[in-house]
Design a protein around this nucleic acid. Structure first.
Lengths: 232, 232
DNA sequence: TGCGGTTATTCTGCATACAGAGCACAGAAT
DNA sequence: ATTCTGTGCTCTGTATGCAGAATAACCGCA
């Protein structure tokens, strides 16, 4: 079976067409992603207490991996753990949202500056391709794909900055805001404004102008916060 | 029994001398803090595999709360979970350290700007008091208290910014860097330089000059990274 | 003596069992 | 009628048991 799993790096048999290592997933991991989706999709309402046995049976696993997943998600800020009362889906106040957005803004600005310095041309081209695709979705007002591409662009910007801790922090905060952001993309003129900002970002990105990119990203977030503010 | 546990806010019997609510801790919480300390104190060496049963017996708990604590710490970035191989104490490359410091810098700069806008005078006075205390420790070269006060100042700056997500992210990153930072405070001239920067920070803070504070914090981190670089 | 394969042991991942803390409902007392 | 208290049920927190993977030990062989 060409034991290419490389137990402890004994001759990794380099440059064999082994491809990426098989991504083995424990139940824990799977439950984490499933629960995360359930939270962002609103199937677990904010403030709601999470009943362990009910979820267990629903997911078809025992309480052990589920509870471990709850701990992980609490670490990501999606749940709140109250002793003797279990997990509660975190609900966000206006201030929480504003605070999160402020941090997201700072992180993405940093990412923008970094990426203009270190990213490969291919990476930038890839982001610009995402942008073009998103624009295409915008002109036909295809909201869900637009939203997903939007998230993908922001994630890609951070990923291209090649800074793992930055990406981790950004990912956690973005997951927290995902649900709220999805709600707050209403109104054609707001949408147009957001699209304009993305256009500016694309220009700055193509020119590798870190400062300009950071400036636009900051503005994009400030206005983004304003956009979702009156929705809440 | 004066059932003051207030199940769903039924007349909290206001203004009774009940003091703060009893901070109940589950085993999980206690194990988390203990393990975190063990990692930052180096009692669990980076790269080392964590043997669950050994730790269990050492801590006097069963595997369940321990495993849940491992998940939490992995979420904080202190451990790495490898399927079927358990938890490994994360080891940081030079780049990891630089990346972390970069993010810490951005977060603290944001905190500095915010705090100058929103913090109470009392909060600022408190930070300045910490600074004075640290300076006193510096003149007598009392390293451990100096180090702890240093951490406390940086944490207090973030705390005074009154932004929970910011504080969370900062705390996690600071925990990751804690061990490395403790090592890298050698050399009298480096120490003096760090102290000078803190002095500048105190001045900017006293004047509530957010931009100046952010600038000094940035410089402090850049030089801090340089200070620990040649130690590693 | 060094290497490959096979077997034993250890350890993780998951499931289940049990005890105590919450919570709800009902009955008693004012 | 309303409030308080007691009792029973539900649910969480913790411990333990079991199966399979991973690692280590061992042995045969070149």
């Amino acid at each position: 079976m060409s034991s290419s799993t490389a137990t402890a790096t004994p001759r990794p048999i380099d440059s064999l067409p082994a491809g990426l290592p098989i991504a083995r997933q424990t139940l824990h991991d799977q439950v984490v992603t499933r629960l995360r989706d359930m939270v962002t999709e609103g199937r677990l309402a904010p403030g709601q207490r999470v009943n362990e046995v009910a979820l267990c049976t629903g997911l078809g696993v025992s309480r052990t991996p589920l509870r471990e997943a709850l701990k992980t998600l609490a670490g990501e800020g999606l749940l709140e753990l109250v002793p003797a009362r279990g997990a509660i889906v975190r609900s966000f106040t206006d201030k929480d949202v504003a605070d999160c957005m402020m941090v997201l803004k700072a992180l993405e600005q940093l990412a923008g500056r970094l990426l203009c310095q270190v990213a490969s041309d291919a990476a930038i081209t890839g982001i610009l391709a995402l942008h073009a695709e998103m624009q295409a979705r915008y002109v036909v007002r295809d909201r869900l794909p637009y939203f997903k591409l939007n998230q993908a662009i922001h994630s890609s910007i951070v990923a291209a900055a090649d800074n793992a801790p930055l990406a981790r922090a950004h990912e956690a905060l973005q997951a927290q805001m995902k649900r709220i952001r999805f709600i707050g993309h209403e109104g054609p003129e707001k949408w147009a404004a957001a699209m304009d900002e993305h256009e500016e970002m694309a220009v700055a990105l193509a020119q590798r102008d870190g400062e300009a990119l950071a400036e636009v990203i900051g503005r994009h977030h400030d206005r983004g916060l304003a956009r979702i503010r009156d929705v809440i």
